[in-house]
Structure formats: structure tokens, C-alpha cells
Simulated assay, not measured.
Amino acid sequence: MIPPKNAIQPDIWQNINPQLSITNSQNGFGGDAAISASNDGFDASTLSERFWDEGYFLIEDILPLDELGILRRGIENLVANGLPPAMIYLYDEAWQVFRRLRPVLSHFLGERVALLPHFWAWHVDPRDGGRGWPPHRDYQGESALGDDMVISLSLWVPLSPATPQNGCMYVLPRSFERTYDHPVTTPQEVLLQDVRALPAGPGAVMGWRQDLYHWGGRASKHAAEPRISLSLEFQNAAFDPMARQLLELDQPPVFMERLELIAAQFEKYKHMQSIAPEIVEWAKAVLNECRANRAG
């Protein structure tokens, strides 16, 4: 574990993952290659049909495997150093993955896409009974207007194969939930035959409206590898901000801002998964160092 006073030094993190970059500039990343997805040929009509009917979409083979492999190694290096996977967002490449997906985001959210300061990364380890987040909705309020305008959207990117064996994503399709007497509030209300497993491999992206009921599975000890993945949330910036601070897709925060944002996630999400108390306390101490550095 890195002492909180040292965590505010970019070089410390760069040494852990020399294959990744940390840009400390307000000028964005630059370079046209990061702007569009590697496969511009996704079927927008089919994508929209499933999304509006069932509440989610899954696109295979849209992201470059070499970049995802570098990020996977980055998370593995963090975990090997006793650090939480969410620290991967200190590195440019974690933000660039989602920047590549602008065509998909714009298709659903319009051209004014804003990043919500809600993000996480997982390393679901079969060796210790790892599991994803429990059944939940990312947002309890209105996530779409009617059947043609999305307010907010979650994207989820696997960096390793996500299978039922290592805890892939599961959803209750909205087409099934609409037949229930009332919206689901507890897992016990979900009919098991309505549950859909969504295995996916590197190169894919999954997205869902934020009122979709979903969860991550528990990994079997017999699974061949961990489930490693990233998630970030977005909103249509034409609507009122859904968070105190919105971020820009093309100009993500610089190092100290990233560190402060990441450190704030642990207290926010500790009810969603088992985070060791010492990690939560470490994150609080890092957050205090960030604020002290900003103030002084």
C-alpha cells in the first residue's frame, strides 16, 4: 500500500504501470485515433430496438484488444501491489477507452455528452469468492423520457472474458419487468427464469439505461481467470446536471483531480461490495491529502 502522503506523486503511480500514461495537462489527449470506435459499423437500428425494449445493449468487437490488454495488465499490477482496481482511472488509457465510444454515446445521448463522476473497476477473483455488485439500479429516478430520449446511460467494458463462471453481468430485461405488478424493489421479487446472463469478452461494450435492474455474479472457485472490467456513467448534458460536478469526455481531469475523484468513490460504493476497512480508511486519507494540496 502506498502511504497517503506519497500517493499524490504521479511518479509513484507511473512506476507501478510504466506501460500506461498520466497526462497532467488541461489540453486533453489530442490525436484523432482516440475519437472514434475501432468499428464504426455497429447497427444503430438493432441497437436501439433492443435498448428500448429490454433496457440494454451489447456490442461485440468494437474496442481494440491491444489497448484493453494494457489496461488489464495495469489493474493486475495494482492488485499485485495491494492497491484497489479503481486506481486505474489515474491513467489516461482508462478514460480513452470511453472516449473511443463517443459514436455509441452520441447515438443515445446526443452530441452533448457529459461524464458523471461515478466510476469503478473490478477484479473479481475466483480464489476468494469474488463477486460483482448486488442487484441494483444505477439511478432511482428518471433515466429516459418516453421511448426516444435517454437522460443517463451506464457503460461497462470487460478487460478479460466475463462468463457465468467468473461473475458476468446479469440483467432483468425491462420487457419482462413490465409484466410485473410493480417495479422490482428486492431480488426476491425477480422470477428466476426472467434473469438473463450477459457473458462478454474483451473488445465488447455493454450499456444500459440507469433504471435497469442488474448485478454482477459470484465467481466460482473453478473459474479459469478473474473477471476484470471498467464502468463509467454518462448523461445527456441538455438536461439538468445529475451530479454536482460533470466531467468532459474529451478533456478528462488532470492527475490531482483524478486522484481526488477516485478516492471519493470508496466511501460512496462501500455498501455495494466488500471493501476492506483499511482500504476505505486509506482512501479517506488520500482524499484529505488531495484537499490539503489543493488548499495549500
Rank of each mutant, 00 (worst) to 15 (best):
A204D: 11
W282S: 11
E289C: 14
I151P: 01
R100Y: 00
S48I: 10
A33P: 01
E54Q: 15
I75Q: 05
S25L: 04
S21D: 12
Y91E: 05
I35S: 08
A237R: 13
L109G: 09
A237Q: 14
E278G: 07
V97C: 12
G216F: 00
V195C: 04
V190N: 06
N39Y: 00
I35E: 14
R178I: 07
E281K: 09
W95L: 07
R291W: 02
A33F: 03
L247V: 00
G146C: 06
I228E: 04
D125T: 06
G167N: 09
L78H: 13
P135D: 02
Y213C: 01
K5Q: 14
L105F: 00
R294A: 15
N24R: 08
A264N: 09
A200K: 07
Y180A: 13
D211A: 10
N81K: 12
W95G: 06
M149T: 15
W95H: 13
F57N: 08
S21E: 14
Q26L: 15
L247M: 09
R127F: 03
E76A: 12
H222I: 04
P3D: 09
L172K: 02
P117L: 07
D92W: 03
F255Y: 13
E111Y: 07
F176H: 15
G216E: 08
A237D: 15
I262L: 01
A162W: 03
D11K: 08
P187F: 01
L249C: 00
M169I: 14
S45C: 11
P202H: 05
Q19S: 15
L232R: 05
G41V: 03
E93A: 04
L68D: 02
A285V: 05
S231F: 00
G132K: 09
E93D: 13
A80D: 14
R102N: 05
E49V: 11
G129N: 13
G130P: 04
V171A: 06
A292K: 12
L191Y: 06
Y269N: 10
I2G: 06
G55T: 09
G55V: 08
W52L: 11
R244C: 02
Q235T: 09
A114R: 14
M149L: 14
V286W: 00
L192S: 08
S160G: 12
S21Q: 13
S21N: 15
Q245W: 06
E257D: 13
D128T: 12
A295P: 03
N6W: 01
Q96P: 03
V205A: 11
A162S: 14
W208M: 06
S229E: 02
L155V: 06
F98H: 12
I8V: 15
S175F: 08
G31A: 05
Q26Y: 12
L58I: 11
V254Q: 14
S106R: 13
Q251Y: 12
Y139G: 02
W13E: 07
E67N: 11
I16R: 07
R127D: 06
D194H: 10
V157H: 08
D194S: 08
R209H: 01
M149H: 10
P126K: 04
S175T: 10
V104I: 14
V205S: 10
D128A: 08
L249Y: 00
